[in-house]
Amino acid sequence: MKFRRARDRDESFTAFVATRSHRLIAHAELLCGHREQARDIVQTVLVRAYQRWSRIEHDDPYGYVQRSVTNAVTDWWRTAHQRHERPVDVVPDVPGRPDDTIDDRRALLGALDLLTHRERAVVVLRYFDDHTERDVASMLGISVGTVKSTCHTALRKMRIALDDEAPSPHSLHGPQEQS
């Protein structure tokens, strides 16, 4: 019986990694701007999450892991700053993507790069993860008013950046879809 439970736990964990890790990587990449670093961060967080999987698997595991990824990226920002590092990679890991997708990704990440860490986190949590302003305020330990004003400032910066770019026909447009 004990083994049965352990096997169920492992199957639940592997299913979660198979179906949700791509979105966690995207979340991390949007926050930190580097896909390889994002994959490393998500992998590390998932290994740690496995230790307590039996406690979190039935209670919004995606939310739990996503919060851990957000915190891990914050730690990465802090230590990268202390080390005076700024990774320069943008290594595509999905072969055969159409060029317009790469352009969109670069444009998006380039615009996000202009934001402060807080602005970036607010934008990602609001528009990628669809959290409410109140939830974002709670996660980041700031007021709802600060979320509103930070979001406004961030979007204005991104608009200016994207206006300055020569837009491709597909740039940042396409059917809205949750993957």
């Binding site: 791509h22 979105r23 990587i25 991104m158």
Partner: peptide, 20 residues
């Protein structure tokens, strides 16, 4: 905001999952 949502979700769709 919807453009931003779309762009971010496009990025997620082109991201491969980790090997469990």
């Amino acid at each position: 905001p919807d453009d931003l949502r779309t762009a971010m979700n496009d990025l997620a769709r082109t991201t491969g999952p980790l090997d469990p």
